[in-house]
């Protein structure tokens, strides 16, 4: 029987391979009851071990006001030594929203994303070779991924692409909180008016000396005018933070957040435990 499988696998095309049962280490029972869980687990985690873990928190609003701009926060600060964090939405036409590598940053990212319909929003944190997965079901009526960017209504939308606004706050224990917004249409390529994907695909956050603090890969479901909240641990909180970005057409984005003068209210939120 096993030999037949091997032979079959050898001759089957790649898409069929994906459907064949393989050694997936993910639990088969999905707490969110999504029929897509197994396929997505295989895609994102391969045969690495996977556990559902409440310490990976996904925060979404109780009511979605704009399906093209759904605020989401992912917080895995309860788990230490996280290598990377990915966010995906099962029922989106493009599921992968972002990957965060918190080099010298908390495993926390807040952002806004598009949803096409009600869907699980999941975050998975890779720590010590194990994927820790958390998520919530987001209730929403649809259309966020197939609607054109708001900026496209203006004929001179391109003039603002790459413009960046933001601020930095100093927090307890030499942590810094960065909030910023990059002007970009973030076309999914799924709107009939804008059939070509055009989006920011990379955002690197560094300290003033160029040492990496956090790096992000961002994908089409990320909202127009990407807006982010990150918790950073720079060597020196009196120095500015540098943001370097790139879109999939090669446009370079460079910005610098001035050292904070303000103290935010949160106490020691950056600590992992």
């Amino acid at each position: 029987m096993a030999r037949i499988w091997v032979l079959l696998l050898l001759f089957l095309s790649v898409p069929l391979l994906a459907a064949a049962p393989t050694a997936v280490a993910a639990p088969t029972e999905d707490p969110l009851g999504s029929p897509l869980w197994r396929e997505l687990a295989e895609r994102y985690f391969g045969d690495a071990p996977v556990v559902f873990d409440d310490r990976v928190r996904v925060v979404v609003p109780v009511v979605v006001e704009n399906q093209a701009q759904v605020p989401v926060a992912v917080d895995a600060r309860g788990i230490s030594s996280i290598e990377k964090l990915i966010v995906f939405a099962d029922w989106n036409p493009i599921q992968h929203v972002l990957t965060l590598k918190p080099v010298s940053a908390a495993p926390y990212v807040a952002f806004r994303m598009k949803v096409e319909q009600g869907t699980p929003i999941r975050a998975a944190a890779l720590a010590g070779g194990v994927w820790h997965v958390g998520g919530v079901y987001l209730d929403a009526v649809g259309g966020g991924c197939s609607a054109p960017a708001v900026a496209r209504k203006q004929s001179d939308w391109y003039k603002t692409v790459g413009q960046t606004q933001g601020r930095l706050w100093r927090e307890k224990d030499d942590w810094a909180r960065a909030r910023f917004r990059i002007r970009h249409p973030m076309d999914t390529g799924l709107a009939k008016e804008e059939p070509i994907a055009f989006f920011v695909e990379r955002i690197d956050v560094k300290d003033a000396d160029g040492a990496p603090l956090a790096s992000l890969e961002t994908f089409q479901p990320f909202s127009e005018d990407p807006t982010l909240t990150l918790l950073l641990r720079p060597a020196d909180t009196s120095q500015p933070i540098v943001i370097e970005g790139r879109d999939n057409k090669g446009l370079r984005i460079r910005a610098s957040l001035a050292a904070p003068a303000k103290q935010s209210w949160l106490a020691g939120h950056g600590s992992a435990e």
């Binding site: 609003p61 006001e65 701009q69 605020p71 960046t164 933001g166 005018d225 984005i253 957040l257 001035a258």
Partner: peptide
Amino acid sequence: VQHFYPKLEASRWERVDET
């Protein structure tokens, strides 16, 4: 919050890009 936050971010944050 979802109505007012994007407006505040767009209008109150300083430009920080080197464009």
